[in-house]
């Protein structure tokens, strides 16, 4: 069954974009038709990750009603050739002017944007035959991220073991996801020490977090120093298919599926 997944977090810098990008890549490498959308309009990231040579239309333009949905798609299927999969990417406009413009949108615009997102979902799954749409959102409770959560089938929440992050996430689940009856799953990122390993410590961490959030923990991602060494333009799972980080994301992909 096709799924729209909003990758969200309470705080910034938790690893949402890396998870969203690699998750999209993994599903596409399994032969699925995937669309990855950058809806972090305040700090667009995917434009750097994919480095498409000429971008004429951004996802902002679709939400503004300035172009058709497919005009914003850029093809990254060459990354998954021979798998039968398809990976398209819709980018957020990284220009300062566009970021500023998105910050001052009216409530009426946000309402129209929500309607366009619903229309996008219908078009992707009912007409274009997509299997997955993965949305990289802005952190925290922000218009665009709430819109993405309302329209998605699942909110994949990325947390770190930082106290303020965990506290904020708990409130966000209670005051946002639950209100919209949105199913959510949690990924713990940047875990260090034995809790990141395969032993009982990891199991204990998962149990504790599950009790705290009352939502399923679908992944524990180790803190990988190499990630910071490599340019974002290198899709980690593509270049390091056997790395423990890639394996952990594959496990998450399987649990969501």
């Amino acid at each position: 069954m096709p799924k729209m997944i909003a990758v969200h977090s309470y705080k910034g810098g938790t690893g949402k974009s890396i998870l969203a990008t690699n998750l999209a890549y993994i599903y596409a490498s399994y032969g699925k038709k995937v669309l990855l959308v950058d809806m972090d309009f305040r700090a667009p990231t995917l434009v750097v990750a994919f480095e498409f040579p000429k971008v004429k239309k951004y996802f902002n333009n679709y939400l503004n009603g300035e172009c058709d949905l497919e005009d914003t798609f850029y093809d990254a299927s060459h990354l998954v050739k021979h798998t039968g999969g398809e990976l398209k990417v819709a980018l957020a406009d990284p220009s300062t002017e566009a970021i500023r413009e998105m910050l001052i949108k009216t409530r009426k615009w946000e309402m129209d944007a929500l309607r366009r997102l619903f229309a996008m979902k219908d078009r992707l799954f009912d007409e274009l035959g997509y299997d997955y749409c993965i949305i990289d959102t802005s952190p925290g409770i922000h218009y665009s991220s709430i819109n993405a959560i309302v329209v998605s089938d699942l909110a994949l929440v990325v947390i770190t073991l930082d106290d303020s992050d965990m506290d904020g996430t708990r409130r966000m689940i209670k005051e946002l996801y639950n209100i919209f009856e949105r199913k959510s799953m949690i990924v713990i990122n940047k875990v260090v020490g034995p809790e990141a390993g395969p032993g009982s410590e990891k199991k204990k961490l998962v149990e504790t977090m599950q009790r705290m959030f009352m939502e399923p923990i679908v992944g524990v991602l180790p803190c990988v120093c190499e990630l910071t060494k490599y340019r974002r333009s290198r899709i980690f799972a593509h270049h390091y298919p056997r790395h423990p980080f890639t394996k952990a994301i594959k496990e998450i992909a399987a649990k969501i599926e």
Partner: peptide, 11 residues
Amino acid sequence: AMKVLDVVTLL
């Protein structure tokens, strides 16, 4: 603005 059914109003 009060009458717009945006996500904040939905909440």
